[in-house]
Design a protein around this nucleic acid. Structure first.
Lengths: 238, 238
DNA sequence: GTGAAATAGCGTATGGGTTGAACAGTTTCT
DNA sequence: AGAAACTGTTCAACCCATACGCTATTTCAC
């Protein structure tokens, strides 16, 4: 009946709101929700590495070790922060292509807003409420494609991976835009070595400004490739 | 003539073998190559977080700070370790589809062998010799597709992202296989909540063993989707 | 040769982080 | 009233990256 939350992966039970009911003893000064919210706040302000038990404890005017009354480890905290920070998926339009586009776009926007999500070492298949909510929404949107569960899941992984990947790339290039001087220096350093080292294709791209430039601002390109590939599968099945 | 390596991103100069020539002073006891090799060794044995300046220094019987005579920061070390660890790309068969398959497969195998590569926070577009070698090899393999530089690069990013993503997934699921007990407990915890929380698709998948199971061992599925999508682009252009 | 310059590695120190154990105070159940 | 449970605290151990100043070593220029 009552599950033993002890043996579950860190954060699983807490993310689903399963908490041991407290009977006696002093009232806790904090709550897991508060702590997680503070973690997100810190991430939004100063990036991933600003999310530390120490900083959060200081923020609440509490000793670092007090955190361990709420969270078993930092890992657990990160899982909770991650799930809370991704929030709920958007409403998807009808039609699997449109839905997939909206789904990926929403993720990319999320990563643009909270780039530190890309730095989180989240291991294991998604199992927290919001993460599964995102999966579920897209699974439903692809229900009428006639694909098997296995194939649908494969497509989802493809889309999800692309969104993550694109978000990561966009962040890197966005950051590079802030230091155009350095980018130029890199070019000056690199090009002669590319020529001499036998990198003809990259040499051409680099001198054409195509490299570094041609990657950003093109979410649609890769997405169209994936959707076309899925389309081939769907059409071939019928 | 002589580039100022000072302002370049960490690791760039060293990865290309540009080192300040030393004229006087004691002979260095170590070399950057040795240090990088030790880093890889540690990663292979104990994973990403085993790669620390302290551990490497201890391994050579040298104080931690001596490392900073060879490497400007840990970040720099990681860039060097990464480039060395990915090694050179394989020879690719002719035909862009076959080449892409071989390219992605090689990467997946690399990630299987050195999963800690997936944990490395490598920011910025690739600029180190081996990383660019991988890019170059695939660029050449796609030269006869008639795609523009921009589109080719887009396809490459897609393939590269998929390889990385698949490698990451495979590792997670491989690790989960070692703890089937825990996986079962997760299922018992999750399924009732999926039912009650309104996750019909996931509920179906979970009870079908499709989730967690259907992801692994299917490198080809996603790859075929991508290749078909690229095929559509190539055919459409002609 | 000899001194000056350059440079290696060391010790010491700082500051950040996670986590453990023992303890004292608070609340609530019996 | 007393016991049980739970709180946050302090003390402590351990990991990590990095900065500064020191001394010993090597080599270049004279």
């Amino acid at each position: 009946m009552t599950e033993d939350r002890a043996d579950l992966p860190p954060g699983l039970a807490l993310s689903w709101g399963v908490q041991p009911v407290q009977r006696r003893g002093p009232k806790p000064a904090l709550s897991v929700e508060q702590i997680v919210a503070a973690g997100i706040e810190f991430g939004d302000r100063d990036g991933f590495e600003a999310i530390s038990l120490q900083k959060i404890a200081a923020h609440f005017g509490v000793s670092t070790n007090a955190m361990y009354r709420y969270v078993r480890s930092k890992d657990e905290l990160l899982v909770l922060v991650h799930d809370k920070a991704i929030g709920q998926p958007p409403e998807l339009p009808s039609g699997w292509r449109e839905a997939a586009t909206a789904w990926v776009t929403a993720q990319v926007e999320l990563y643009a807003e909270r780039p530190w999500l890309l730095d989180m070492p989240i291991h294991g298949a998604p199992a927290t409420p919001n993460a599964l909510r995102w999966l579920e929404s897209m699974l439903q949107a692809m229900a009428d494609t006639g694909l098997s569960q296995h194939d649908t899941l494969g497509c989802l992984m493809l889309l999800d991976g692309y969104a993550r990947n694109y978000g990561d790339l966009a962040r890197q290039l966005g950051a590079a835009d802030n230091m155009p001087v350095q980018a130029e220096q890199v070019g000056q350093f690199l090009v002669p070595r590319l020529i001499e080292g036998g990198y003809p294709m990259l040499t051409a791209m680099y001198t054409n400004q195509e490299y570094e430039d041609g990657l950003d601002d093109d979410l649609e390109f890769g997405l169209t490739r994936i959707l076309d590939g899925i389309q081939v599968l769907i059409s071939g099945k019928s």
